[in-house]
Design a binder for these strands. Sequence first.
DNA 1: GCTTAAATTGAAATTCAATTTCAAGAGGGT
DNA 2: ACCCTCTTGAAATTGAATTTCAATTTAAGC
Lengths: 160, 160
Amino acid sequence: MTDQSAKDNFRSYLATQGLKSTRQRDIILDEFLRAGAHLSTEELYLRLREQHPHIGYATVHRTLKLFAECGIAEPCHFGDGQTRYESSAGEEHHDHLICTDCGAIVEFENPQIEALQESVASQHGFLIERHRLELYGRCQQCQVFKNVVDTGRNERSSSR
Amino acid sequence: MTDQSAKDNFRSYLATQGLKSTRQRDIILDEFLRAGAHLSTEELYLRLREQHPHIGYATVHRTLKLFAECGIAEPCHFGDGQTRYESSAGEEHHDHLICTDCGAIVEFENPQIEALQESVASQHGFLIERHRLELYGRCQQCQVFKNVVDTGRNERSSSR
DNA sequence: GCTTAAATTGAAATTCAATTTCAAGAGGGT
DNA sequence: ACCCTCTTGAAATTGAATTTCAATTTAAGC
Ligand SMILES: [Mn+2]
Ligand SMILES: [Mn+2]
Ligand SMILES: [Zn+2]
Ligand SMILES: [Zn+2]
């Protein structure tokens, strides 16, 4: 799904639901697609505020929920107490590796795991609608730094 | 890990941390182990209140966090906005199948998936500390009822 | 373009689980 | 029993998510 098809999807979703196309929604969608990453409402709101200080937090919140409803964004919960949204534009389904030290997020996709999930579900009579797989640990960089700190060979400032 | 070893673990955790063994903590641990399932703070508090109305919500909350710290309980987030805790007593690591209709939770363990997770992580240079795998869908029963409702052959009351 | 009904906006208020505060009470070493 | 420290429970606070509501904007119909 490209950025343009995300915009088209959103347009037609609004149309079919009797909702209206507004300047704010357009601006928020543009910024959301431009940002790319896994953004919380707060983060997107702050980014928008630089160029568009008139746009309210509540509108950003409501618009992100609309994005999720129409399928152009996916909500993520990475355990920091905030809901993040990622664009579905240009991305197939994927899962996440999350560094517990620096917060880095790496996306991956593993067909074998996906297949085994289906297999497990059917063994228990379940029909899967969606799933969540998150692997938490240390990224390569943070493993190196952790080792340095542990052995006292360096006094690098904290990575966060 | 048996219930008794959970109690022993908790005792020694308190001792090593300079914390105290109290009547409330004993009662909360007993009820937590007895309940068995995936309980939220609220649910455990309500269960306790029947026999021990003097125990406060804050104490239940703090005690569950202690259980998690010392490894006899695992926090779970199943997307209903509440943190649940499950006993680690008598259980190996496992993941969850969750029915989005009736809320049923089925536990499973799949060594192949676990191995593939490690493989994915090492491909990306990560060292996994923990992971979360949740499969959301309909349990067998809810698939059947859904079908009945859809075809109008029955008027069974909603399962929730 | 003008009118109008319905949807949207944004500031502020509210919700709700999680967490903290604090004064009174309990544990446990001596 | 004494004393210091930890714990408790009611109430207050926090913070993200969500709702409220009066003013504004959209877009359909004329
Ligand atoms: Mn992603
Ligand atoms: Mn479980
Ligand atoms: Zn890292
Ligand atoms: Zn079910």
